[in-house]
Design a protein around this nucleic acid. Structure first.
Lengths: 341, 341
DNA sequence: GCGCTATCTGAAAGCGCTTTCCTGCGGTAC
DNA sequence: GTACCGCAGGAAAGCGCTTTCAGATAGCGC
């Protein structure tokens, strides 16, 4: 076996005693080929362990079988849940997924889009919030526009503003409002909110929806602290609240991951959940039902969202107006919430 | 702007009034080019929003800047922790990561290796246990051997047997033994074990190490149940144990994820951890410190393992003997374990 | 047996790039 | 002024494949 060198279609054709064209036709099934030739080609291919060079194919066919996915952090359960759905759907379509983590660095996100563009990925999917950065927005536009013009597909999930592309969007506002109403129904009247990075549409909608529902009931939203969408963010936010004196019977965290951090902070300070204070999150990432107490939250079908976003990107008609698919959230009351003390 | 068509290097060269070769040289910095020409090329490239076709480059250069990663499930925190490390390291090297999930289907794993081979990925990284399947092993060998012969790099992490390639390997045996000794020191003498799928090296080593350490202290390992490496597996295993009457003061689950399921089952049956029974896991995935009680476990540096495996694959000298990098685990005693009741 | 058509096969062009080879230029030494 | 050298830039080959186009072969009706 030749070392350091790949078997090419030419090798297969030679071994089978046919032309390159015939070998290609056999292996792709693109045209009828006499049976004995076909057999010889197939035998030679498997004998030589031939694998077509995907780059050569992509070049010749001017298309390829990959999609790119960009998220902030694969090990955040919100993203990995969605990514799982994307991968499942991609597998069904025989697409290869290139997954990149930005680690919340906007420059890196732009760089990845550029790389995926270079790869001529069939579609580029962006998972999770964008950046509040004018420069980023321009840079992104510079990358995305030519890609779209060249027939590339772009879709985003759980990201709303700034990029005018097809979108899968959780109904954050309605979900948060429904959660607020459920919490009001439990009797709470004094709330505190652990909000995410200001300006992100997810934050604006969740906190806004929560606030609106309270307002509709004549209840003012109380203390609000902002912090990153992470366990540490939730921990720090809850700690800050506690430091300045928590004046609420119920705490709403904008994401489950933040709620996990908040729970830890609460517990460290000796507050019992839900006896002293109720706690609710948003997303229903898998871990929250294993917390003690299990977390009340707004459940989002993460995997389905992933499947939807890739389907949306690949579906025809992309050059028309922007399509938005809305995903409803479902309030799940668990033991982390109860009536006020 | 031309629609449906990509800007090529030829377009840039024409716009700049230079030859293809010169444009290539400027954009790659591979040779000295007169300053005014260089400026013109750069201006034209950015004017046209040119992005090189990675496939054409890969073809012409006979190499490319991607690595493939195959794991069982991105949304399992063990894998996503490792994947995070891989991505961080890949980003530093300007490599694009193609990540595939097998969903524990061995045929799909083989298919992915084939696709990554077709992509001429610089390296293929396999995360997590292999399959106990003779057919799979042969199929894998058929794919991997030509890839290696052609200069491809393959490395695995947390997988030991059957594939004789470079490996990053947690010291499962030693870690489990150390954990067992710590548990013995707490006073436990009756243990039950939640084991994983039989035959997997990870299982063999963890359960074996645990058992050996007990044996060294003259303590027999008690009940053992097997199940898949998942929350459901842990839940079912613990339930089975409870059904047949749990005869142990301490339960050891082969992975943290299983321990999470076990904890839920235990609690559902009214058993308190650690008062009625102590519980320990393995891996130290992020969530376990947020459980109540926080889980005693053997901590593995997941992200570092990811960084190590990609470094190992890309490091030269791969054609020599198989290299194995061992990763030590560290026993972390948390509140889920205490002395026997 | 001849001419025509319907199939199948092979030659060759071309996808977009890199890289080798070669030409032409300016500069230096004599 | 001539011969030589070094260097920058262009022409062209080639990476491995797909696909068009044309040629060859077989099959059919007369």
């Amino acid at each position: 076996m030749a070392d350091r060198v790949h078997v090419t279609l030419r090798d297969v054709a030679t071994a089978a005693g046919v032309s390159l064209a015939t070998a290609s036709r056999v292996l792709n099934g693109t045209a009828k080929v006499r049976e004995d030739l076909r057999d010889r080609v197939e035998a030679a291919a498997s004998e030589l362990a031939y694998t077509p060079n995907a780059h050569a194919q992509a070049l010749a066919r001017a298309s390829n079988e990959t999609v790119g996915v960009i998220c902030h952090d694969v090990s955040d359960p919100y993203f990995s849940g969605i990514a799982r759905g994307v991968m499942r759907a991609a597998a069904q379509r025989d697409l290869l997924v290139m997954l990149a983590s930005t680690f919340r660095d906007s420059a890196r996100e732009v760089a990845y889009v550029s790389m995926l563009r270079a790869q001529r990925a069939r579609a580029i999917l962006l998972i999770g919030s964008g950046f509040e950065d004018r420069r980023w927005e321009r840079a992104m536009d510079v990358e995305l526009r030519p890609y779209l013009n060249a027939g590339g597909r772009v879709a985003v999930v759980s990201r709303h503003r700034s990029l005018r592309v097809d979108t899968v969007l959780p109904e954050n506002r309605a979900g948060a409002a429904a959660l607020a109403r459920a919490l009001l129904a439990l009797g709470h009247r004094r709330f505190a909110v652990l909000s995410g990075p200001p300006g992100l549409s997810t934050v604006v909608d969740r906190v806004g929806g929560f606030r609106d529902a309270l307002a509709a009931a004549g209840v003012p939203v109380g203390q609000v602290v902002e912090g990153p969408f992470s366990r540490e963010g939730g921990y720090a936010g809850a700690s800050a609240l506690l430091d300045r004196g928590l004046d609420a019977t119920c705490l709403f965290a904008a994401t489950d991951v933040m709620a996990v951090g908040a729970l830890a902070a609460l517990r460290e300070r000796g507050l019992r959940v839900p006896d002293d204070v109720s706690l609710a999150g948003f997303d229903d990432v898998p871990v929250v039902r294993d917390l003690t107490p299990p977390l009340t939250t707004v459940a989002l079908p993460l995997e389905e969202m992933g499947e939807r976003v890739i389907a949306l990107a690949l579906r025809d008609g992309g050059r028309g107006r922007r399509r938005i698919e809305r995903i409803a959230g479902r309030v799940v009351l668990r033991a982390s919430t109860t009536g006020p003390p």
